[in-house]
Design a binder for these strands. Sequence first.
DNA 1: GTCTATAGACGGATAGAC
DNA 2: GTCTATCCGTCTATAGAC
Lengths: 189, 189
Amino acid sequence: MQRTGAAPRTDTRSRVQKVALELFAEQGYEKTSLREIAERLGVTKAALYYHFRSKEDIVHSFTDDYFDAIDAVIDWGKAQPPGDATRREIFDRYITIVLAGAEVFRFIEQNRASMQSMDSVKERFGRFRSRLDTMVDLIAGPDGPLRDRVRAAAALFAASTTCMHFWGTETDVDDLRAIIFEIATDLTS
Amino acid sequence: MQRTGAAPRTDTRSRVQKVALELFAEQGYEKTSLREIAERLGVTKAALYYHFRSKEDIVHSFTDDYFDAIDAVIDWGKAQPPGDATRREIFDRYITIVLAGAEVFRFIEQNRASMQSMDSVKERFGRFRSRLDTMVDLIAGPDGPLRDRVRAAAALFAASTTCMHFWGTETDVDDLRAIIFEIATDLTS
DNA sequence: GTCTATAGACGGATAGAC
DNA sequence: GTCTATCCGTCTATAGAC
């Protein structure tokens, strides 16, 4: 059976994304050079520049989807009537995203400083910046008491950090999801 | 009144620490050059090398105290009989440390990747590495059920991240402390 | 689409004068 | 304790051949 479709034959681009994400998350964005990524793939640096405009561009290629997903949750939440059911649904969707993009999320956690200096330069102004505040507003209300706001933030932080911390261990994903969801509702009931 | 004591007159060393911590936390460890730190202080790079052996050494100079404090809590916890009272005391001490060293903690959070590649090189093996696992063992027991372990981790993560997130705002520290403590006990009762 | 070669800049660190 | 001057390594990015 011969290949006939329009699918790329080598798909170097996605291989670059995969390796870059691994290395960036593992040893950090700044400490990982394009030379290292190229070597790992058996190509040269110049080849990377055919697929991506810059080193930062590689990052954007796998973070954009992630942030779009978060934005979708925020937009959905804004359109809903505030209340306990909406809150639960926001957490459910949020946890799904974090679990699905755990490796991307781990990269972000490990490279907070690098991320922040990226968006300050570029026109993607608030792309990497406190979406979290918006979600806190959504959960605790913009004028809610401090306790509610701190607990909402804690729920979101706890969800993402525990997910990241237990991801990749022998832990069952569905068990983890249930436990995290319980934590989030306990903190914002 | 003339100075007579043994106190250093200029105390460049501590000024370096202060500026470095600020810049490292703000824009990242790798992105901050020694030239930049020196310029901000009105001295030259070479002057920094009189006070510190290397760039990493500056980091260690303000993280060592922090980690020693965490270790002290761990050691104390290990010597106590497991139970609810010990748990509460661990959280209380932990929150105190995090609140007191909020800026150092923020630096660590922002530069996770850089931190991890430091201790892998040096003889300070686990210095920056999962102390957190040890604390989870202390709180949930080494063989506790997954739910307890995840919740213990969540409590610790929540404490440190919310502390960092609300630190520097107009939030009252004692209010914050009480709220965080409540979260921690809610999650591990 | 991938290569070689290189430009161009900046980093950490050291030597040695003062 | 701070300076000037410099070494040497590495990095991102580009030009241009194949």
